[in-house]
Amino acid sequence: MTHSQLTPAQAFDALHGFCAPVLVRQAYLLTGRRALARESVERAFELAWQRWPEVARDRDPGGWVRAATHEYALSPWHRFRRRHRQPEALPGDPAGRALLDALLRLPPPYRRTLLLHDGVGLGVRQIAAETEATTSATANRLRHAREAVTARLPDLAAPSDLHRRLTELAAAETLTPALPPTIRSTGERRDRQWVRTAAVLVTTLTGTTALTLQHAPDHYERPVPQGQAIHGLPPHTVQGPLSEKSRKLHKKLQSHLPHGPQRLTPSTD
């Protein structure tokens, strides 16, 4: 069966079988944590399966998954996870412990550049493209990383010796990522969860928007500036002088006692 006759699942399984064993060891050299190394590879392949048409058409599908693995492994958010706050046991071999300790002391971009060049064997231009850096920045990272490792381990000054020791350190760890069917099913389940979450968010946002539009004012009312006169009120009237008839009635009312039936039944004369 040729490559063009493979189903998407078969092509994915072939890529996993070819790349996953190597990538999980690379992730271990980048992190020094076995569980995180397996998780990084599994998440990278889950993402590859979710975007399989894009990955399948890529010029280098293995490089695509490698970049996703390295980026997940070196994510700064892992430091906030509880299980990653505790140190993990280093390799039993003293030389391996010394090399891994020297690697983990490097800044993450330097560590990744050194691994890709002296471990994987990529050129500076390829590393710059994969890590989204300039060639000059990549060359500087490689030079500083080699100087830092050589300062701690002088016997690894030659790139060939460093490559050999990196390969031995990675091969000394028995790390097995999840099988392709498990990764595909997990990725599909995550996709469904994301779709449901997105649907709930869209529904909530739509309802909130509709409620806001329902109760929002439909026109603008300019506020009245402070200290300015308000117009449109009836004029304020002042009581004028009493007429002659009113004065006589007022005087007559004052001359009578305040109590009695005559106060309840006014006289008509």
Rank of each mutant, 00 (worst) to 15 (best):
A129Y: 11
Q5L: 11
L166Y: 01
A157K: 07
V238E: 15
E132Q: 13
S267Y: 06
K251Q: 15
L162G: 01
S185L: 12
A20Y: 04
Q254Y: 10
D218F: 08
S267C: 09
D191K: 14
L153H: 04
A27S: 09
R112L: 10
G232D: 11
P154C: 00
K248Q: 15
Q254L: 15
P225R: 11
H70T: 12
L233Y: 14
S160N: 01
L122N: 10
A11T: 04
F12N: 01
R146K: 14
H163M: 01
H259V: 13
A14Y: 00
A210L: 15
W49P: 06
P217E: 07
I127A: 04
L179P: 07
Q5M: 10
L249D: 14
G227T: 09
V65F: 09
A98H: 05
E147N: 08
L29N: 00
H70C: 14
L169W: 01
L6I: 05
L100P: 00
R97A: 13
I230R: 14
P154F: 00
V22N: 09
S255Q: 14
P159T: 08
P154V: 01
P241F: 03
L122V: 01
G227E: 08
Q262S: 03
P180Y: 03
R165E: 13
H70N: 13
A11L: 05
A102Q: 03
V224C: 03
T182H: 10
S4D: 14
V200G: 06
A9W: 05
A158K: 10
